[in-house]
Design a binder for these strands. Structure first.
Lengths: 282, 282
DNA sequence: GCCATCCATACCCGGGCGGTATCGGTCCGG
DNA sequence: CCGGACCGATACCGCCCGGGTATGGATGGC
């Protein structure tokens, strides 16, 4: 299977519509139909159930969709990491650290400072991303190492080292009834706040349907919280970035939030190994 | 990047010889040279240092080799798992369990028996492989779940559940001086045995140079041990399969051997989830 | 019943992949 | 020191395949 075929299949499987998928791929619809047909024939597997009115995935198609996404990420990662390795002079390729925009700022700053004074330290670029985007960046090679928060982020498939374990808190508008309390229990949560959770863009940059406001960065989110339009559950350390009009209330009965460093397991970079060591020694 | 280009590059990077790589790929040498050149131009990266007498990898080339292997494994896995999903009727695709040939036999048997009586149990095929091959099988889709032995097998990138933790032992010829002792310390190890370790085939089925005998399965290995030609370090439970002419001597000072179940993290198969649950509940 | 929609098929064209022939550079043996 | 073996790069050619347009056939809505 060629990556082109996988890209084509993923497009159709996601759109469930040959015409739109073809448009998204920048090709005409007939070659796309033919390519999918050839792929099915060669795999000996029906991937899509199609009538002239609808397209749906078969079981085999669902399997291929998940596997193809992983494979395409791996190919994208290969391309990006090779490009980056080639730019830098021998052995000095920089690192890209993926981090939640705005979250764990202090921790990241200390980490970078501690690493920077190491002998043989390489340049570290920080890639600020929305929630759930760091994992993806790690998988597709945009980042070499990332700050993740278990259990919210999916750590599966990465090597990890725990940095901090803390309790979660809920960030709400100052003056909100909850702020009069010492803590709120997890079981009360969506209702006790009274405002909908924010919606973040998915991997295609689109927003799912729902009641909450659409947000794409943390400053914007904090403003919306300060305006009483939404709320956020975050590690208590996030309280430091809360600022005017936003108050953190501890959440009880919830599993602790683990802030951890994650990186792809096949990585053999000495710079990365050193970075991880510095991070965990502190 | 197309998988064809990745296959070509990996062939050249492994052979470090365009002619041999081309032969292995079943194409002529000139198209291969051209393909690699195009790849380098498009990546903007020199991957190979070549004179007319030798070919070697650049730093960027080393990065691409590691990433390309992972990506090609992912593509191969996509293809195999899709094929398998298509063969079985809806929702009943079987599982493939990778296991070290001969090792953990009892454990595997119990596991399979316990799973088989579950409601909705699907067929489980067992794939017997040489050491270090189960990981590869898991990565390239030949297996869905595997029995691995930490710290010998590389668990990076998989989800795992621990099954058993035990101490290692060394299997030697009956009558060997060591068998008179209660235990042997790890630090004494290669020397105290006096015979070379066996050599297993690598991922291409070839054997590295070295003193030990070439082996490809466990029966053969046990015969060689019984003949006093080699030895093996294994979990103590392996003593049960030792049989005539082979004796297990406990090893001290070594980290315990963990027998665990591993599976690819992106797997969303309900059959696999149930299998893992049965395995860990025992 | 007609039309809009949507996927499949038919057909054509051009780029790119793979082939052979050959060049240019390097190492080695005599 | 020279000729030949070796090896990767280049030149050139033919054909397959991927992409295009046009159109068919099926289905559902008005």
């Amino acid at each position: 299977m060629e990556t082109r075929e996988l890209r084509y299949f993923v497009a159709v499987a996601e759109e469930l519509h040959f015409g739109r998928a073809a448009e998204r791929l920048g090709i005409a619809q007939p070659p796309l139909s033919r390519a999918i047909g050839q792929l099915e024939r060669r795999l000996g597997a029906q991937l899509l159930e199609r009538t002239s009115r609808s397209v749906s995935l078969t079981d085999a198609g669902s399997v291929l969709l998940a596997e193809a996404r992983a494979a395409l990420d791996a190919v994208a990662a290969a391309e990006r990491r090779t490009r980056r390795a080639a730019q830098a002079p021998s052995g000095r390729a920089g690192l890209v650290l993926g981090s939640k925009a705005g979250a764990a700022n202090e921790l990241v700053a200390k980490l970078l400072a501690a690493y920077a004074v190491e002998p043989d330290a390489v340049e570290v670029d920080v890639l600020l991303l929305g929630p759930g985007q760091q994992e993806q960046a790690l998988r597709d090679g945009r980042a070499d190492v990332a700050i993740l928060h278990a259990p919210w982020d999916d750590v599966a498939g990465f090597d990890t080292e725990v940095l901090v374990v803390e309790d979660p808190a809920v960030l709400v508008q100052a003056g909100h009834p909850l702020t009069a309390r010492d803590a709120v229990d997890l079981t009360e949560l969506p209702e006790a706040v009274g405002v909908p959770a924010p919606r973040w863009p998915d991997r295609e940059g689109r927003y799912a349907e729902g009641p909450g406001p659409e947000v794409h960065d943390v400053t914007q989110l904090l403003q919306l919280i300060a305006l009483g339009r939404t709320y956020l559950v975050a590690p208590v350390s996030a309280a430091t970035l809360a600022g005017e009009g936003v108050v953190a209330v501890p959440v009880t009965g919830a599993p602790p939030v683990t802030t951890l460093l994650a990186w792809p397991p096949q990585s053999r970079s000495v710079a990365l190994a050193r970075f991880v060591r510095v991070a965990t020694l502190r």
